[in-house]
């Protein structure tokens, strides 16, 4: 029998703490596949953030640093400046990156830090139990927007990829979705590009991945994928927002 798909070497052989159907697991797998395919396992250093992916370092068989809430791009900057030959990636959720860590992500992009950022956008705070995220959709109910997000008092969802695509220092900014196999495949290609860019010294790359949180959305995993497709993609259009320097 010829292998078509096997478990990536760069994943540790443990059961993750993620809820059933959580697309964090898909994102992890795609990153691990990328590390394997690019042959960079021995020189990759990951940065875990605060959020559901706080234990990411348990699941990747590479060196890892766990960062304070929102600060992963700064930590990654510190690592990369000491070890420019290493491949450094930060893995952050929407609360971490788009709320408390907004300054760090924008300025890492401004500096054109030669790092890769994987940004999980699931429109909610998972770790702390389903509170409103900066990416929560208008009208979406969460424990802190129990009547639905009201733009009048709670503002509008923040669009990180669009925002960062205006930053000259950013080299590659793209948004993908993990709601079906075809999109997962596209996301994989984007992630691979984001790591390849770093290997080639091209600078800052960020891949935003639309993800589900079936537990806090209160849905089955399959319904969550459907909800993502129907509600998130219209608000967060997919695509590569920036490839290459300038503008």
């Amino acid at each position: 029998m010829n292998p078509v798909y096997t478990r990536p070497k760069s994943l540790t052989n443990v059961v993750t703490h993620y809820c059933p159907g959580c697309t964090h697991g898909i994102a992890h797998r795609l990153v691990a596949e990328t590390i394997d395919e690019l042959g960079i396992q021995g020189r990759t250093i990951g940065v875990a953030s605060v959020g559901c992916s706080v234990f990411a370092y348990n699941y990747f068989d590479v060196d890892f640093q766990q960062a304070a809430h929102g600060r992963a791009p700064a930590v990654a900057t510190g690592i990369k400046r000491v070890r420019p030959e290493s491949i450094v990636f930060a893995y952050q959720g929407d609360g971490d990156l788009a709320s408390i860590g907004m300054a760090e992500i924008v300025h890492a992009a401004v500096r054109g830090e030669n790092i890769t950022v994987i940004f999980i956008n699931n429109a909610i705070y998972g770790m702390t139990g389903g509170q409103m995220a900066p990416t929560t959709l208008v009208g979406q109910k969460t424990t802190t927007s129990p009547f639905g997000r009201d733009p009048g008092t709670q503002g509008y969802p923040v669009k990180i990829s669009e925002l960062l695509s205006t930053v000259k220092g950013a080299y590659y900014v793209a948004r993908f979705s993990l709601h079906n196999p075809a999109n997962v495949q596209r996301a994989k290609q984007g992630i691979k590009k984001a790591f390849q860019n770093q290997i080639e010294g091209k600078g800052f790359s960020l891949v935003e991945l639309l993800s589900t949180c079936s537990t806090n959305w209160g849905m089955t995993p399959q319904n969550a994928l459907k909800w993502l497709e129907e509600n998130m993609i219209p608000e967060y259009p997919l695509g590569e927002f920036k490839t290459g320097e300038g503008e």
Partner: peptide, 8 residues
């Protein structure tokens, strides 16, 4: 199936 499996 493998591509969608969150748990590898």
């Amino acid at each position: 199936c493998a591509r969608m499996c969150p748990d590898a």
